[in-house]
Computed example of a mutant assay.
Amino acid sequence: MRAVRILPADQWHTAIHSVTLDYDRRYRRRLRFVTDQGTEILLDLPEAVHIRGGDALALEDGSYVEVRAADEALLEITAPTADALIRLAWHLGNRHLAVQFLPSCLRILEDHVIADMVRKLGGSAAQMTAPFDPEGGAYHSHG
């Protein structure tokens, strides 16, 4: 089976399969994987796109595979003030790290060196496990 396009979460209805992928495997152009139900699928897109949890892979036969974001080892970064959190976001961006922005915290893939930097800058970095869905950036498209 071949997946030929991505549909955002609000543009599809019923999936026949699902696949659980981590962040790195959700930014692809071409990828061979096995669905959670055991079916082999080839993702074959014209260009790499950021696939988000809840999106669907459209198969050539018109059916869909729901994409689920896998739990990953993350750091949840907080700060005592909004200004301090913005400053930390700048430092993370300056290191070209993928960052997920939430209302009162930032999340990045777990990295003990960055956790030490965050603490030295007055923030907190707590280890956690959750799906990771960072900002795609101005130059990355969404399916």
Rank of each mutant, 00 (worst) to 15 (best):
R2E: 10
R2G: 02
R2K: 14
A3D: 07
V4W: 07
I6L: 01
W12L: 00
T14D: 05
H17L: 15
H17E: 15
V19H: 08
T20G: 15
T20C: 14
T20S: 15
T20V: 14
D22C: 12
Y23W: 15
D24G: 11
D24H: 15
D24T: 07
R25S: 11
R26T: 03
Y27R: 15
Y27H: 15
R30C: 11
R30N: 11
R30E: 14
R30T: 14
L31Y: 11
R32N: 12
R32M: 12
F33T: 09
F33A: 07
V34P: 02
G38I: 09
G38V: 08
G38F: 09
T39C: 10
T39W: 13
E40A: 14
E40P: 14
L42E: 13
L43D: 02
L45Q: 10
E47G: 07
V49Y: 08
V49W: 07
V49K: 11
I51K: 09
I51H: 07
G53Y: 11
D55A: 00
D55M: 04
A56E: 06
L57E: 06
L59C: 12
E60R: 10
G62E: 03
S63F: 05
S63H: 11
Y64E: 06
V65F: 06
V67S: 00
R68W: 08
R68G: 03
A69L: 06
A70G: 12
A70Q: 14
D71S: 11
L74F: 04
L75P: 06
E76A: 07
I77F: 00
A79E: 03
A79L: 04
A79I: 02
A82G: 06
A84P: 07
I86E: 08
I86Q: 08
R87K: 12
W90F: 11
H91K: 10
L92P: 00
G93D: 08
A98I: 05
A98P: 07
A98N: 08
F101V: 09
L102A: 09
L102C: 04
L102K: 10
P103N: 01
S104E: 14
C105W: 01
L109M: 13
D111W: 03
H112I: 14
I114D: 03
A115M: 00
V118S: 03
V118H: 03
V118E: 00
K120W: 02
K120S: 10
L121M: 13
S124C: 04
A125P: 06
A125N: 05
A126L: 15
M128G: 05
A130T: 05
F132G: 01
E135T: 00
G137P: 03
Y139L: 03
Y139A: 00
H140I: 12
H142M: 05
H142E: 05
